[in-house]
Write a protein that binds this DNA or RNA. Structure first.
Lengths: 332, 332
DNA sequence: GGTCCCGGTTGACACGTTTTAATGAGTTCG
DNA sequence: CGAACTCATTAAAACGTGTCAACCGGGACC
């Protein structure tokens, strides 16, 4: 186990350790000749800078944290791609954490990120208690909310979920649905409650009543949760149409309905949310609400790094995208 | 921006910094009364240990790296779940990196991990040049190959891809296929070449010739690559059956074939690999080769941490699982 | 010719923690 | 009763890098 440090490089190149550090961090301040000598020494010795020492001394790392609700959800994978691209452009690293929609796991993840002294955190909060986040900020860690709108003193990038919910349900109503079901995860998850509010708004602007929308709440927003929900629907009597809070739920619902011999969309129309890639390849191609997912991650990261680079001159922004209806067979 | 260090805690609790460190790292060595006093001080002050300083002094961090070929692939997401569970049980963190099947990106990721002084790296190599990995090991970083078998001096956890390929193609042949296509990513990816070898082996044990298997190579092993492959197939004349090196490819192929009016399995039988969750919900439920994915991640991590905890007494192991054929409509 | 300045380089200290040997206070044993 | 031990705690020395004030040599300017 060899350990070659900055001073070994310095000795080899015939300069002081300070100069090597300068080559690493502010190459423009060192004469071209010296620099190339140092760079060669680095290569010859196979030196890799000790990130811990660097972070310790500099007071901040070159990493940001990304905390998502579910790494298994293609929606977040796409967000992560956007984050990754920006972050690696700016020569930083991203530490990906999964909260699994659990506030406890989220808190654990945040503690790890705090210990790592990340420059900032991109997060889709699992609950509505953001006090942990605010404490983080007091410790000098920038925070940007992803897919979650925020108040004035913090950046956020979100998609208008109320509008999305309204879009989905209005579409179902226009297709003739009179009795509807809304399948979602826990109410505490903002995406769920907002999309539900949108759904209700669509009812209001039609001749339907709030009672015409049945709520089905499942513990997890994935295909398994969707299967659970579909069984409940089969037991309690099928509605005309089902709106699912995300595509994974919708795929789970679809699967169980088809197995039970229910025709989609003839017997029950179905629409999901997120427009993940698999939706269009489903047994019955799935209608959905499309969001600018990659953009979400990209812009959130740009806001975050801008804030890190110039905390004083940074003005917090709340960016809100508009979602888009994608109609396929499942509701066509 | 408040920064509270170990010595602030020490002052508050009326002990020395060393004792606080002991409470953090070897609680059993400090008297119960002192310990609870320190713990209270930590809580009151909101102290979070500086991971960089800790790593620097201790010489190793409490993190492992996981480098996968494609975070967008549910196969690796499932592996990551296995890794995550073990790692957080043992109070470590995991840094997830994506190589996107590119050796260059892989090298960049490894450099970052080396800088972070991770204890070990779990990796599915993108190419067959493992010299970077060996260099890492000389720097004291343990390495375990995931979904990639290795020689005696390093741990690996893999699934028998040759057997899997054979399983898939034998099944297609038994279903009556005479002309076959194999859709895969670059040959340099071992999974692809092994599954292809298995396919050829299945031909040998039948009355078919190697020439009866057409190779379609696409640059990316995802749904997009599958669509590309399907268009090639449509142009060059359809075979009786298609074997795809993973399910994402198969889903892409399926989509384009169905759009072109090709009936699956009547006109063309189709089988994928990995048995990801979406496969069973596809337009035509997809036959596939199932692997113990979660186990793969879990066991790899256990091997890795065992090696880290006791490098001397550790015997390298190469574990090989057997895959399993799952027949659904696409080949039924 | 002296002064000033400037780009390039240096040396030493500081970052917050872990670790080791040393210290001190009890406790047991010969 | 002193020696030998144990257990809990401490003080100080690292870990490898970044930073900043100081320094040096050489040109420009008056």
């Amino acid at each position: 186990m060899v350990t070659v440090g900055i001073k070994d490089v310095a000795r080899r190149a015939g300069v002081s350790p300070g100069t090597v550090s300068n080559v690493l961090n502010r190459p423009e301040r060192v004469a071209a000749a010296t620099r190339s000598r140092v760079e060669e020494a680095i290569r010859e010795l196979g030196f890799v800078r000790n990130g811990s020492a660097s972070t310790l001394r500099a007071g901040q790392s070159r990493a940001v944290g990304l905390v998502v609700l579910d790494v298994g959800n293609p929606f977040f994978v796409e967000v992560a791609r956007g984050v990754e691209d920006v972050v690696s452009d700016r020569d930083h690293a991203v530490i990906l954490c999964n909260s699994g929609e659990s506030p406890e796991k989220e808190a654990r993840n945040l503690r790890v990120l705090a210990e790592q002294r990340v420059r900032g955190v991109l997060i889709t909060p699992a609950g509505d208690d953001t006090s942990d986040l605010l404490r983080l900020r007091e410790h000098g860690v920038a925070v940007v909310f992803v897919d979650h709108s925020a108040s004035g003193d913090v950046c956020s990038v979100a998609v208008d979920d109320v509008a999305g919910g309204e879009l989905a349900v209005r579409h179902l109503i226009e297709k003739g649905a009179r009795r509807l079901a809304f399948v979602s995860g826990p109410k505490a998850i903002r995406q769920c409650s907002d999309r539900r509010r949108g759904a209700l708004r669509a009812l209001e602007t039609s001749d339907l009543l709030p009672g015409d929308l049945t709520d089905i709440v499942v513990p997890e927003m994935n295909a398994h949760g969707g299967q659970l929900a579909a069984r409940t629907l089969l037991d309690e009597g099928l509605p005309d149409a089902v709106f699912c809070a995300n595509d994974l739920l919708a795929l789970g619902v679809l699967r169980v309905l088809l197995q039970a011999g229910v025709r989609v969309p003839e017997d029950v129309a179905l629409i999901g949310y997120d427009d993940i890639e698999f939706s269009s390849a489903a047994a019955v191609p799935l209608s959905s609400i499309r969001q600018p997912t990659y953009q979400l991650g990209k812009i959130a990261t740009e806001l975050l790094l801008d804030e890190c680079d110039d905390p004083a001159g940074h003005a917090h922004q709340q960016i809100m995208f508009q979602p888009e209806l994608v109609v396929r067979e499942s509701s066509g």
